[in-house]
């Protein structure tokens, strides 16, 4: 028996999200004292470092991850070969597209967007996930002999407990893709929103795209990823991929700083799982203050530069 963790490197590197998943897999395997095996899809220069997170074996196989047919066939075959009882994938575009297929192939129960290490109750795995866009959570029991789960980013802190391991290739029959990848664009620089630790977000209070410099400077000072509210994205002040909220990206960073955002219920639904929320708004009646941990009532054009300066001071101390 084993727990199989599927890791997707990005641009040849396993990032923080991959090490989170390794720790998640390790702790899940510990529930039944089984082995935790990671399978890295493609080349990653730092694949051996997965061993640092207590993994028993690091395997790789190079497949076109955009093809859910190839992805699912590969993982299902790997699961059989490695005698996996629990298959863990990241809750991202490719993971979500493959998990349902894998579950059908293995006749496995599927729960997606799991946000905490499961509990094992006999042969039944109990898992927790957010529902109603983060306004509630639900606990499920998976009773099938094989279980498939996808795990949200920022659900666990990577926990270094061991040493780097040698990496070996997993030998499986090659599956051919019927798709043609024409182009792939990746944004470089800041961490993608779903896995960012720190997020600075702006709303209509900024009055226009030309005023974003002070937000960008605050984000750069913190090393944070930038986001925005829906009206801002709809007005094309900021790119659509920055839109967080119920119909945008749902995030759960350690720190979410909302500046000039009133806090409509649809916006809160996408950010209410953030560990700490700071709200800066000139309107003391803004509904966002009710969901905030810390708040400043004031003019953002004065407060934000002061906040950037104060953080710079802290970083120099």
């Amino acid at each position: 028996m084993s727990v199989l963790v599927v890791i997707e490197p990005s641009a040849g590197i396993i990032n923080k999200g991959g090490f989170e998943l390794a720790t998640f897999g390790k702790e899940t395997a510990a529930l039944s004292a089984t082995k935790c095996i990671t399978l890295v899809l493609g080349n990653a220069s730092n694949a051996g470092e997965l061993g640092i997170y207590g993994i028993d074996e690091v395997l790789t196989i190079d497949i076109p991850t955009y093809d859910s047919v190839v992805y699912a066939k590969t993982i299902a075959e790997a699961s059989k070969k490695l005698d996996a009882s629990i298959v863990i994938l990241k809750h991202n575009a490719n993971g979500k597209a493959a998990a349902g297929r894998i579950a059908i192939k293995l006749n496995a129960g599927l729960v997606s967007a799991v946000n905490a290490v499961p509990v094992l109750n006999g042969a039944v795995l109990q898992v927790k996930r957010g529902v109603y866009s983060g306004k509630a959570s639900a606990t499920y029991a998976i009773s099938s002999s094989i279980k498939v789960i996808t795990v949200l980013g920022n659900s666990i802190k990577p926990n270094a407990t061991g040493n780097a391991l040698p990496v070996s290739e997993l030998d499986l029959p090659k599956v051919t893709s019927t798709l043609e990848l024409i182009d792939r664009k990746t944004m470089s620089g800041r961490a993608p929103l779903p896995e960012a630790d720190l997020v600075v977000s702006g709303g209509r209070g900024f009055k226009g795209p030309e005023n974003w410099d002070i937000l960008l400077e605050l984000a750069d000072t913190l090393g944070a990823t930038t986001a925005c509210s829906r009206p801002v994205a709809d007005a094309d002040w900021r790119p659509h991929h920055e839109h967080v909220g119920q119909t945008g990206v749902a995030i759960r960073p350690n720190l979410y700083i909302a500046i000039g955002i009133s806090g409509a219920i649809q916006h809160l639904a996408g950010v209410n799982s953030s560990k700490t929320i700071v709200v800066i708004n000139k309107d003391p009646e803004a509904p966002f203050f009710k969901a905030a941990d810390y708040g400043i009532v004031g003019d953002l054009f004065e407060v934000v530069p002061k906040l950037t300066a104060a953080i710079k001071k802290l970083k120099h101390e």
Partner: peptide, 17 residues
């Protein structure tokens, strides 16, 4: 293969500082 055990609501926020 999967059954719901229960739903929970998040603990209320302690209020803004």
């Amino acid at each position: 293969l999967v059954s719901l055990i229960t739903h929970d609501l998040p603990a209320p926020k302690k209020g803004v500082t």
